[in-house]
C-alpha cells in the first residue's frame, strides 16, 4: 500500500507540473490536430470504409503524438537531477514507475478522446454512436502503450540523443499493439462484436505481459 500511496503522490506531482509546463502536451495535441488536417489532404477518404481505414490512421497519429509526451516523462527529470531525488525518496522504485505510468495513461486517454472528437468532427468518422466501446478499446490500448512508453523513457533518459532514439526503440515494439488497436477500433466503429475477438485477447495479454515486465525491469532501467 505504501507503493500505491507513493505512486499517487508522484502522479499528483506530474499532473501539476505538466499543467504548468504545458510544452509536452501542447506539442502532442497540436501535432494531432495538424496531422488530422494534413491527412485530409493526403488521403481521399470519401467513399473509403472509414471504420477500417480511418482507425488505422487514427492510431498512427496517436502513436506519433503520444511519444512526444511520454518520451519526455523522464527526460525532464534530468534537468535538475530530480530523478535521483525521487529514487532517494521512495523505498521501492516501482512507485516512481507506477506514478509516471498513471500520468502517461491519463495523458494518452485525453489525447485519445481529443482525436476521436476531431476525427468525428472533421473527417466524419463514425465515432459518435460507438463512444462506449471505443473508450473500452482505447483504455486497453493505452494501458499497454503506457507501460512500454514509461519504462523506455526511463531507460533512455540519460542517453545522448534520447529524443531521437526513443521512437526508434518504442515503435517496433508497439507493432502488435498497434495492429490490435486498429482492428478493434475498426470493429467498434462498425458496431461489430468486441468480446470474443482474438484481438482483444492479444491486447489483454500484451497489457499484462508488458506491465509486469516493465515494472520488473524498471529498477534496472533506473539505477546506474
Amino acid at each position: 500500500m505504501r507503493l500505491l500511496r507513493s505512486a499517487l503522490i508522484v502522479f499528483g506531482k506530474e499532473i501539476r507540473e505538466e499543467a504548468r509546463r504545458k510544452e509536452s502536451f501542447l506539442a502532442s495535441f497540436f501535432f494531432s490536430f495538424i496531422s488530422i488536417v494534413l491527412f485530409h489532404f493526403s488521403l481521399d477518404l470519401t467513399g473509403a470504409d472509414l471504420s477500417r481505414e480511418g482507425s488505422g490512421l487514427l492510431w498512427l497519429i496517436i502513436l506519433f503524438a503520444g511519444s512526444l509526451f511520454t518520451g519526455n516523462s523522464f527526460r525532464k527529470e534530468e534537468e535538475n537531477g530530480t530523478f535521483q531525488a525521487l529514487l532517494l525518496a521512495v523505498s521501492d522504485s516501482g512507485a516512481i514507475f507506477l506514478g509516471k505510468y498513471l500520468a502517461n495513461l491519463a495523458f494518452m486517454t485525453s489525447l485519445g478522446f481529443f482525436l476521436l472528437f476531431l476525427s468525428g468532427a472533421l473527417l466524419n468518422m463514425p465515432v459518435w454512436n460507438a463512444l462506449l466501446p471505443l473508450a473500452f478499446v482505447f483504455t486497453l490500448v493505452n494501458a499497454g502503450y503506457s507501460s512500454l512508453a514509461t519504462m523506455i523513457s526511463a531507460l533512455l533518459s540519460k542517453e545522448k540523443g534520447s529524443a531521437l532514439l526513443y521512437p526508434l526503440v518504442l515503435y517496433p515494439l508497439l507493432v502488435p499493439l498497434f495492429m490490435a488497436a486498429a482492428a478493434l477500433t475498426g470493429t467498434a466503429m462498425a458496431s461489430g462484436p468486441l468480446l470474443g475477438s482474438p484481438w482483444l485477447r492479444l491486447l489483454v495479454l500484451f497489457d499484462i505481459l508488458f506491465f509486469v515486465a516493465c515494472m520488473l525491469l524498471f529498477e534496472y532501467a533506473a539505477e546506474e
Partner: peptide, 22 residues
C-alpha cells in the same frame, strides 16, 4: 540499456507473430 531492450524485444516476438498471422 541494451539488455533491457533485448528482453522486451524477445518477449514481443510471439505477440508479433500472432498479430501478423491474423
Amino acid at each position: 540499456i541494451s539488455a533491457v531492450v533485448s528482453i522486451v524485444a524477445f518477449l514481443n516476438v510471439p505477440l508479433v507473430n500472432r498479430a501478423i498471422a491474423w
